[in-house]
Every structure is written in C-alpha cells, then in structure tokens.
Design a protein around this nucleic acid. Structure first.
Lengths: 142, 142
DNA sequence: CCCAAAATCAGTAATAATTACTATTTTTAT
DNA sequence: ATAAAAATAGTAATTATTACTGATTTTGGG
C-alpha cells in the first residue's frame, strides 16, 4: 500500500456518500469545510482524483465542462438536465453489454465506453420554463 | 435568418471539413491562421459554437476536458485513445436505437444520449508503450 | 514511546480552456 | 449609397484544475 490514511480524505469520502446529486469539487469543498474548516481546495481535488483512481468513487465527465463525483460505484447511468444542469441517476438494463451487442467496426482496440443521457429532470418537468438546447452530440433514438 | 455571412466562419468550416482528426479550437486556430492570419482565437471559438448550434458541425465532449469538433454530422462514434489522446471514428450499428432497446427507468424525460469509446488507436497498437489509465466511468463489457 | 521516512497538507501560484467586453469593420437589405 | 445588425480583432476576465512549497501528519520499526 503506497498511501497513508488521512482524515481529510475520509471526511471527503464520507461526505460524498451522503449525497445523491453527484457534486462537483467546489461543492464538496464548500460542504466539507463546514466540518473541517481548515481543509484546502487543492486537498479536495487531489483526494477526489485519488479516490477515483483507486476506484473507491466514480468521476463523471458528462460534457458540461465540470467533473462530478459519485460515491456509488455500482453500474448505473446518469442524466444531465438540459434545463437546470442537475445530474440524476437512471437505471438501464442491457447497456452494460453494449459492446457485445453492437457491431463496432474500429481499426484498433476498444477498451470500454461511456454513455450518459440528456433530458429533463423530474423537478424541471413540473415547471414550465423553456428548455436549454441539447448538444448536437446525441442519439436521436428517443 | 438571423446571422450574416462571414468569411472567417466559412474558412473555419472549410478547414474542419478537410480534417478527420476532430481538432480542438486551438488547433483550428493555429491552422486557419495560416490562410487567414488576422483571425482571432475568440472568433474561432464563437464560430465553432455557432456552427455547432446550427447543426452544421458537431461538438464532441469526450471527457478529456477539451471540446473537439467534427465536420461530419452523420451518425458515427468516437474512440479516444487512452495512450495518445487522439480521437478517431468508429462505426457501430444498433447504437442509435439504444434508448428503444435498453430498459431505462428514469423519473423524468430523457431526450437523448451520448456514447463514446476508449481504447487504443491503430497507430498506438503498433507501438509498445504502457497504456494511460482509463477512467472509472466506463462499461466493462469489452 | 520515539523517530525518521514517506505521505499528505494548507496556502498560493500557475495553467488551460473558454467566455465576455468593446470599439471597429463587414455584411446586407433597402 | 446608407444605415442597422452582425461579426470581428484584440484584450481582459472567468472557471476549473493542477503544480509548487514548506510545514504537518501518519506509520512502521527500534
């Protein structure tokens, strides 16, 4: 084992486990500070990266330019709300075997894939505001 | 129509059409400058965004923290090389109907999805260097 | 318990990608 | 030709993230 215990890392991980909204590093920082006021933003970034590398949490790159983090490492999917930007969970069967079922032609070696969704979250569905434009990088099979 | 012709925009679009490697804004800038030396980086960013919004090109958000652009708007997929960071095309049948075939449970409205792949590009497959670590955000069905 | 090496930290500076601002120039419809 | 709208070049600002540094913490022996 090449890394030592740190209270800061534990607090970060514990905080993340309390959240289901896939917070960004600065949100983690803002919250963890309340329990651990002397923690620095760099420590939050470093530990979120380390925990991701160790596979203890998941780093989500959902195309919004900010990394999100998720304490839940089990197989599930994410929906970015095109209206409010929130990230919520979705379950989808069969997606995990996407690469077995799709006929992929590629002149190299494929190791894995990432799928994420766009849509309107439950909360925004109840409102009536206009939608933000979706990226042009999505499938139209909806 | 709410936008006017601009030579800069045309040059940007024409340049992009000559490339199959999904360049980033700064690569577009560096190249377009040679033909149009007075163009500014802001103009490149603004027009790449506008063209994406118009659906004339595709903006690719592949989790590497930089936006890539593609003149080919037809349905196809992208593989990010975990070794050299290059982005190349892949064909995959059936993926476009991912949302019809997968049993998605979500408490809101899903509009679309994005799928991209990680792997080793053809060029790097021939080398022998060690792989960069893949993100922990991928399916393991490979 | 004490100590030293390694890891980690806080705080700050630096970087990288992108967007915003502004005065000037270009486009285009009349 | 002309004037309004759009776009531009150049620069400044913003945002997210990483890098650096000297001090502190952790941890496995003695």
């Amino acid at each position: 084992m090449t890394h030592k215990y740190s209270r800061q890392r534990q607090v970060i991980k514990d905080f993340l486990a309390t959240r289901k909204d896939h917070p960004t590093a600065d949100v983690v920082y803002a919250n963890v500070r309340q329990e651990y006021p002397s923690i620095s933003l760099g420590t939050v970034y470093r530990n979120l990266s380390l925990l991701s590398d160790l596979g203890e949490i998941r780093r989500l790159r959902l195309g919004d330019g900010v990394d999100h983090y998720d304490a839940d490492t089990s197989e599930h999917y994410h929906v970015v709300c095109t209206k409010c930007g929130s990230v919520s969970d979705a379950q989808a069967d069969g997606l995990g075997r996407i690469m077995e079922n799709a006929d992929i032609r590629y002149d190299g070696e494929i190791q894995g894939c990432v799928t994420y969704f766009y849509g309107i979250c439950a909360k925004c569905c109840q409102g009536r505001e206009s939608y933000r434009s979706a990226p042009h990088d999505f499938h139209t099979g909806c």
